[in-house]
Design a protein around this nucleic acid. Structure first.
Lengths: 219, 219, 219, 219
DNA sequence: GATGAATGAGGGTTCATTCAT
DNA sequence: AATGAATGAACCCTCATTCAT
């Protein structure tokens, strides 16, 4: 995650070619400003300043504010996804001998952590704000429940069903429901990521959700 | 070019006195413009024009843009709530002889109808957009799941439990979960009210949710 | 021709109502700047400064640069026409006992004076510059030969024909030709009003033109 | 992404050496853009793009926008002149047995055709627009009546006078007058080349002009 | 000689807000 | 209380021009 914007001078003394570093610096500044201010409030001047770059350079790279915005959202979306990849490895408690409820609770906490990450929350609010005016944001909007999380839960449900601990016919649907429930309660109680969610509230959400699904599907 | 319809005071014919009709006109125009454009894009000029009122009159009544905004949100919140009161009378199908599942599905459809109403959706997006910058919006943000709906469901669950059809210990929690599940799936699939939700998708959401809760709580 | 831009305070001490003086000041500044710089070079900032008015006031009065431009051209066109009305009174040498040639020469000088007036020339160049891009300028462009001059000459030709000094069948056509000839040679030799026309050149143009028409139409 | 078609010099494969083809391409693009947009609106970026050349190459060749502009005008002036050389061969109808009036009418049509050519008109408007700000345009401005046309008419008048059909003392003056008359009426009625001149209007101009001169000079 | 990237100044336009009537 | 006119700051974007490769 290099963020320097100065042209780096290699060992051979070449003064640097076309500088993709600037593009990156602009994108990072754009993400920061758009997340902080929203689309309309964000000013290209400020983004340029924050990227230590002239305003026209921004326009040379991205054409106009809207395209810069979409690029920033796209980039941030990838960054958020990447940041949480380690969290999403499905292996960890699949084989766990722990009982189902504990597994679901643990999974729920993971969902909430990903969901309430500060930058991810700001991105979500931004996308919701602007999706009505920028239809290109629809894919980003549909990502509310990161697909990877759902897949992970599908695997978990399938495995537990195979083991005879659960009785889930249609794991995809059930997984989406579980995640949706956590997401909505998490967003709602944290004001869409605007206030930190106290640990006990998070725990309550996860445990009650686990209770519901255990009650419904434990064999 | 006088267009006011309020009665004049004073014998000499000077138009004078506060004109509460104007305040209302301004508020309505403000709601329309803020919902349409968002906080930053909305311009006081346009609001004044749309209210057929001078710009300074807006400032006389509301002080500044932010206070006008908060008043508009508050007003719209009440309007939305009021609009759906008829839908929310809890008596209607409580005594229905219909089975529990059907009652839950019907209730779910009611939730989605309220949730996806065009103005209600625009209001929700607006509140989510600005809650980070205007803390006074927090109450409005917490209204994501209209309280009345939840109360209604609590009553339903309680009654059905009394009748021996269900076995719900903590109806408040269960009701919140049911509503949260519907809300999240409805918002997600309709892009936060930005595209119409096809009937079969709405039906699927409601039925699967009913299935889950029936499975968990039917005695 | 009042040109003061300060709000005048009437005898009763009222501090001035809506100030049409500002509109006038803006228009005058606009004329000056557009004539000096041309449409594109002219900047609304400079016009506002020169009118001692804020830029937004310009926009409040005229909407945008193009409308300001058209208003300025229209105003200047009227001003130019008005400025030369005294010159155009047709009575002066109609009854003159002088011979026809002298009358035509005198008329020719009048045409050149009107034509080569500094502001009128700048206006003509401006209109020619922009008529391709602003179709609303077409009327102004068609005014190249002020209609009043042609009418005047028509009267002169008619009178002289009635007196038996000339033999002009179709005075309208002949008048347009005479004026066109003078105009073209005047514009050409003065570089469209860009360099002063020496007296002897002007005289030559007028005299040769008079010779041509006398030769063609003297009875 | 090399798109140049000029041959490379040097054995090692470095593209090098002056590429006069590029200079020509730049000039052509500059002419097109300046004629289309006028001096101020024309942007060096667009010219460079249209010439398929980097912007700096434009600066390398022409120094700055103004010099590029002057070169473009000069080039276009030559091109226009060259384009009409075939039309200007003076021999064609000089010996024509047709009567003088017909010859003058035919000549008039030739003048109007040359005058109202689309590119020639755009060039004229451009020169008139800018002559006040770029004194180097004065020669181009003086070319309003192409010298070649006048010479041609001088020859015609001389020949017809020698034949005893006309009685013209000073053919140069008369020729300039005839051309000036046509030019002014043609420009005026076509809005300086901005709207097409209907055939009957062109015919009327030419015929009335021929009538005038025949009336004045036929022996 | 030619390029792509970068710049600082300035373009037209719109904003939230206040003054004078 | 209500208005129309006015303001200064800021917006997005484009310009002619230069630097570094």
């Amino acid at each position: 995650m290099r963020t320097d914007s100065a042209p780096r001078r290699g060992a051979v003394g070449r003064p640097a070619g076309p500088q993709p570093a600037k593009r990156q610096a602009i994108l990072e500044a754009a993400v920061a400003v758009f997340l902080r201010e929203g689309y309309t409030r964000a000013s290209v001047d400020v983004i340029a300043d924050e990227a230590r770059v002239s305003k026209q350079t921004v326009y040379n790279h991205f054409g106009d504010k809207q395209r810069l915005f979409l690029a920033a959202v796209e980039g941030e979306r990838e960054r958020v996804a990447a940041d949480f990849t380690p969290d999403l490895e499905p292996e960890r408690d699949l084989g766990g001998a722990g009982d189902v409820r504990a597994a679901l609770v643990a999974f729920g906490h993971r969902v909430l952590r990903v969901l309430l990450d500060e930058r991810a929350s700001a991105l979500r609010r931004l996308v919701i704000s602007e999706v009505a005016r920028h239809p290109s944001l629809r894919p980003a909007c549909a990502d509310g429940e990161p697909q990877q999380l759902v897949s992970h839960l599908v695997a978990l449900l399938t495995r537990r069903t195979e083991r005879g601990e659960l009785d889930v016919d249609d794991p995809a649907t059930v997984a989406r429901q579980f995640v949706a429930l956590l997401v909505q309660q998490g967003l709602h109680q944290s004001m869409y990521g605007t206030r930190p969610l106290p640990g006990h509230e998070a725990a309550a959400i996860c445990e009650k959700a686990a209770d519901l699904f255990v009650r419904a599907y434990r064999r």
